[in-house]
C-alpha cells in the first residue's frame, strides 16, 4: 500500500536558503485572492447594491449581529469584529479552496519524487500554530488592558491563600493549553479530512468517496466558524471584569 501522506508540507524550491513549501505558496495565493476580491468589492460599491454586494452585505450584517450577541456591547463588537471576520473568511477560503477539482494532479519533481503544488493550507501545522499564537497574544493584550498590568499579573500570582496561589498557577497552564487545543482542533480536523479522502480514494475510486467529500466541506465550514467563535468567546471572557473584583 503506497499512500503519499506526510505531516510536514513538501518543499517545492528554495529562494537562497529560504524553503518555499506548497502550503506557503498557497497561503500567498489565498491572501492575494482575498485582497484583490476586497479591492474589487471596495471600488464597485453602489448605493443600490447588485447581487454580489447584497450577499457580502448580508454576510457582514449577520456576522456583526452574531458578534454583538456574543460580546453584548456595540462598542466592543466594533473593535473585535475585524479580527473575527478576517479569521473566519481566511480560514473558510483556505479550507474551501481545497475542494477545487483537478488541483491535486499538478505536481513538480523535488529531487527525490513528485510533490503536489497544492496543499490544504490548514493541514500545515505551522500555519495553524501561527494563527493560534496570534489570537492567544491578542487575548492576553485584551486581558492586560481590562485588568491593568498589575491586575493581569495578580490573576496568575495570587498570594492571598495557598488555594488561590495554586489556582493561579493552573490558570497559566490553561493559557498555554489554549494554544494547543485551538491549533490541534483546526489542524486535526482538516488534516484528517485530507487523509480520509486519500484513503477512501485508494480503497474505492468511484462514488464511495463522495459522502466523505461532503463531510469534508461541512468540516471546512464548521471548523472555520468554530475557530473564529472560540477566539471571540475567549476575548469576551478576557474583556469582562469579574464581579468579585468590583467588590474589592
Amino acid at each position: 500500500m503506497e499512500l503519499n501522506i506526510s505531516i510536514a508540507p513538501e518543499i517545492l524550491f528554495y529562494i537562497k536558503s529560504f524553503p518555499v513549501s506548497n502550503s506557503f505558496l498557497w497561503t500567498l495565493f489565498i491572501s492575494g485572492f482575498l485582497t484583490v476580491a476586497t479591492l474589487i468589492m471596495r471600488f464597485s460599491l453602489k448605493i443600490i447594491p447588485g447581487t454580489l454586494q447584497n450577499c457580502v452585505e448580508i454576510l457582514i450584517e449577520e456576522s456583526f449581529s452574531f458578534v454583538k450577541s456574543v460580546i453584548r456591547s456595540e462598542e466592543k463588537a466594533k473593535r473585535v469584529f475585524p479580527l473575527f471576520c478576517t479569521l473566519f473568511v481566511f480560514i473558510l477560503t483556505a479550507n474551501l479552496f481545497a475542494f477545487i477539482p483537478g488541483q491535486a494532479a499538478i505536481t513538480v519533481s523535488d529531487g527525490h519524487g513528485v510533490a503536489p503544488v497544492f496543499r490544504a493550507v490548514m493541514a500545515d501545522y505551522g500555519m495553524v500554530l501561527v494563527l493560534t499564537i496570534l489570537s492567544v497574544i491578542i487575548i492576553q493584550i485584551v486581558m492586560i488592558i481590562t485588568h491593568g498590568p498589575f491586575g493581569y499579573l495578580g490573576k496568575f500570582f495570587n498570594f492571598h491563600s495557598p488555594l488561590k496561589f495554586f489556582l493561579g498557577l493552573m490558570d497559566i497552564v490553561g493559557e498555554i493549553a489554549k494554544v494547543l487545543s485551538l491549533s490541534f482542533r483546526l489542524f486535526g480536523n482538516i488534516f484528517a479530512g485530507e487523509v480520509l479522502g486519500i484513503v477512501m480514494l485508494f480503497l474505492v475510486p468511484f462514488i464511495a468517496p463522495l459522502p466523505f467529500m461532503f463531510l469534508g466541506v461541512l468540516t471546512a465550514i464548521v471548523q472555520a466558524f468554530v475557530f473564529a467563535t472560540l477566539t471571540l468567546v475567549f476575548i469576551t471572557l478576557a474583556s469582562e471584569i469579574e464581579e468579585d473584583e468590583l467588590v474589592e
Partner: peptide
C-alpha cells in the same frame, strides 16, 4: 477536541 487529540497522535 479530545477525539482530535487522539487522532493527531494516531497520525
Amino acid at each position: 477536541s479530545t477525539g482530535i487529540y487522539a487522532l493527531v497522535i494516531t497520525l
